[in-house]
Design a binder for these strands. Structure first.
Lengths: 343, 343
DNA sequence: TTGTAGGCGTTATCAC
DNA sequence: GTGATAACGCCTACAA
């Protein structure tokens, strides 16, 4: 196949006996070009099969109208909602989204950020990998004034706006709820404690226990990767406990549901023997029996907001920093209720 | 903030008293450059804070190493799996993914494809919107030799490879299963019939009925958008039926589960009174009670394969077409079993 | 093994 | 209103 020559604004200019500059302006609907000329330009462009070359334009303008997105995984209910939200806002505003996943490793996060950097993204939306401890790989962006915005799994940095929910408060509320339902011995299953979302929820849990003078011991905390498989392992662990907990607060729904189902299979009654609470309000939470008490978390809204904040920065050429943290709302959704209420 | 001047290969060249061409080659690890020179180049690049400019390179090479992805929605279990698969393969091979959603409308699909076209993506991975009837908006790509690959929701086009599962066979198998379980009156809830996935599943259902001499009537077919809400509406409709079906095959799990749960709420016993089958094997399918019989569908694998085929085309500069259709496997996952087996 | 030079297609600046 | 011109930064044929 012989690729036809690409039509450029020069070709249009030549065919109309005007300059390329005029064609460029005409196509951009520049005010200082006569209606007639514009019409002729558009017509010729259409006739000749012209296609705008973003690459050349990007190179010249030093901008790409592209937003980079780096997330741990694309395929979780929360994350795909968040990305769907971003896409809508970005698309609306004329930005493209380049998306990559770190697969929970710092190594890929670093590599991906470098690619984004070289590809000259105009800004970055990031949710950090499990074990990212420092964010020096984003310094290059910050130094260049390219906005980096963290959402959900964040890092406190003077130059990077954050978007989160109040994980501490959510952890506190849900634990308090479990206590109100009669739980005295309440377990917590959490993720990597160096990640804000998990450590904050844990802190909320701890504080709720303390407030009600309930003892905490290491036996009550399990830290894993919150997968379904580890939910089952957790169930096994619970079954082997001398003194079983009356309630379990798991830091995500996937793991909570897996754990619940395994315990049910082994004859434990939920919520009578052990009641459960999760986090995220994934679709499975409203389907499992009994339905799972959880924290609702607006993924799509968070994605939209992140994109909106970024685009506002880009549009107004705002200096980044000092960091601004936006806290989105969440809701405790009570779905399990044991019969032994105390409070 | 005064943005520092960007370092270019010319700056490096000057500082080392060599030519920019040598620097360019050195950075690309070109064979004909001495080890020493390469080392000096890399060191200087690092020292001076050089960053490769993909834009300039892309413009010059007429390639972007970018793959465009257009899907109906990002946030479904299947689609986010597929995209996760694509991302991994693409990332591995040094390609970026630009992702956009059509939100099930042709209009956005057309707009997005135009953006992708202007952004000079090297290839396109597409799953079509509900009501896309012709694909003239992709002709521009095809004419230019830019590969367009359809997955899941496809369009038969001589120049576009397809990746699908055998929806006909899957629909047939699952219906046959319902029949074997004792169903005589079997309903089918489906999506837009101009979309291959839904019409094929319906065709399989029809043929299974016919094979077993079971009557089909319009009353047995409901066409909607397969949302949870419409699942509930379907339940209402079923409740109002004089002669209720013994089994229902719904073309996705979301809708199936919603319908099932609503019927349960109204006192219908599942699967004793009415048994259900869905499609997709979403996480909710294994959580709902009773677990949902469904067709397992490898989203991640499909995404990986789509990306692999595309990249192979790009790498080998293959002529696109004549179209090749790849059919991926699927599995019937039986989870509900009524007690009135016949076959 | 390295250098020279031209061009990829657009847009900003300055001029008329 | 429109035109001329010079970048944007890289790559590659050709030359040495």
């Amino acid at each position: 196949m012989i690729p036809e020559k690409e039509i450029t604004i020069y070709d249009i200019a030549k065919s109309l006996n005007i300059s390329a500059a005029t064609v460029s302006r005409g196509l951009k609907d520049h005010p200082g070009i006569s209606k007639l000329t514009k019409k002729r330009i558009f017509d010729a462009a259409k006739d000749m099969g012209y296609r705008f070359n973003s690459l050349a334009s990007n190179l010249r303008r030093q901008r790409t109208n592209t937003i980079g997105v780096i997330v741990p995984r694309l395929n979780s209910s929360f994350m795909s909602d968040a990305i769907a939200g971003m896409e809508q806002v970005a698309n609306q505003a004329g930005y493209n989204l380049i998306i990559s996943q770190s697969l929970e490793t710092v190594k890929k996060e670093v590599e991906n950020s470098l690619t984004m950097f070289n590809n000259r993204v105009d800004g970055l939306l990031v949710s950090l990998a499990y074990n990212t401890q420092d964010i020096s790989h984003f310094e290059a962006f910050i130094k260049k004034g390219i906005p980096v915005i963290f959402f959900d799994r964040i890092f406190e940095h003077i130059k990077c706006p954050n978007i989160i929910i109040d994980n501490y408060q959510a952890g506190y509320e849900i634990t308090k709820h479990l206590i109100a339902e009669g739980g005295r011995r309440i377990m917590h299953v959490s993720g990597n404690q160096s990640r804000n979302v998990y450590s904050e929820r844990f802190r909320g849990y701890r504080d709720a226990l303390e407030e009600f003078n309930l003892p905490f011991s290491d036996e009550l905390l399990i830290v894993n990767n919150l997968t379904a498989l580890e939910g089952i392992e957790t169930a096994v662990q619970i079954l082997s406990m001398e003194k079983k907990p009356e309630a379990v607060f798991v830091s995500n729904d996937t793991c909570a549901v897996a754990c619940m189902l395994e315990l049910k299979k082994q004859g434990i009654k939920i919520p009578e023997d052990i009641s459960f609470a999760g986090f995220n309000n994934d679709p499975i939470a409203k389907v499992v029996e009994p339905n799972l008490t959880t924290i609702n978390y607006h993924g799509e809204e968070m994605g939209e907001l992140a994109a909106n904040i970024l685009i506002r920065h880009l549009t107004n050429n705002l200096e980044i920093g000092p960091a601004h943290t936006t806290v989105l709302g969440h809701e405790l959704i009570v779905r399990q209720s044991s019969t032994k209420k105390i409070i």
